[in-house]
Design a protein around this nucleic acid. Structure first.
Lengths: 154, 154
DNA sequence: CTCAAAATCACCCGAAAGGATGACCCGAAT
DNA sequence: ATTCGGGTCATCCTTTCGGGTGATTTTGAG
């Protein structure tokens, strides 16, 4: 209970400890006889600087690094519902690659696609690599997403 | 030149001004005769508290850049259709899981999703496992496909 | 406060995916 | 006949996924 509370606000406790310790130290050493009589300004300045430092430290420790994420939206594409032949032609996907892409979009694994098309797994991997290259993506999920957004698959 | 510098670090100057003013005030009022002789502790304590406060204020003002705003440009594709709230409720996906699912649908890798949401990769793996469980699928591509077909994501 | 769900993180391990390259076959174009 | 693109398959290697399990922390409802 108390330990948890202490752990959570350890910085405050540390600060309090530092505060108490410093004041005690000042008293203990009886600086008032050493410094006070001739230069109260020096004493005040030193205190001010030290506790400003402590304050800064405290604030930094307590400040939660809250990151605000601002998402700027841009570029709007409209879903047409029909295949964008021009886009398809521009990308230069071969018939086989498009076939693989469609199966990919259905969530099939490479092995499943290979079985479905009666070819080897390696062949599908080659095709998919080519697809990624032509679509300028790095993963099948990206490929599917982009293909759908570009309306080259339904 | 100087003005720009001053504007940039106005908080430091304000702090310096406050420091000087307070010390001057103390001197002016000759508190050393009023307070010092009987309660140096009170004087020190007051100074400590005041300057701790100033330090905190200073740190907060200067730490402004830590409230960093991460601007993420995101392309938005508009699609006709609305979210199937009933289906969403039926599946029982949590808010976080839905969030992960959406990012998944954008083709992000688990690591990228983790970075985007400021959590660890392991957390995303747990979320995705739960998503697959709830959607009754085995792969992210299937999850995305099913989610889109069920209209629980756009 | 207490309980439960949600969210977080970790570790292990095997499967799948992906990058890079090379090779072979075949049909169409040069 | 040669070149070239598409399709096929392979090997090696690295990264990412996904399953399984356990644990702690946060949070919200009762």
């Amino acid at each position: 209970m108390f330990l948890r509370f202490l752990a959570r606000y350890k910085h405050i406790f540390l600060y309090g400890a530092a505060l108490a310790l410093l004041l005690l130290l000042l008293n203990w050493l009886e600086w008032k006889f050493i410094v006070m009589d001739r230069a109260i300004e020096l004493y005040s300045g030193a205190l001010a600087i030290v506790f400003t430092g402590l304050g800064v430290w405290l604030a930094i420790k307590l400040a939660r690094p809250k990151w605000k994420t601002v998402i700027v939206e841009k570029e709007v594409y409209v879903k047409t519902g029909t295949i964008n032949e021009k886009e398809l032609a521009r990308l230069g996907l071969s018939a086989r690659e498009l076939e693989v892409l469609r199966l990919m979009a259905e969530g099939l694994s490479n092995q499943e696609i290979a079985s479905r098309l009666f070819v080897s797994l390696n062949t599908i991997k080659t095709h998919s690599a080519n697809i990624f290259e032509k679509l300028d993506v790095r993963r099948r999920t990206q490929a599917v997403d982009k293909a759908k957004k570009l309306n080259i698959i339904l």
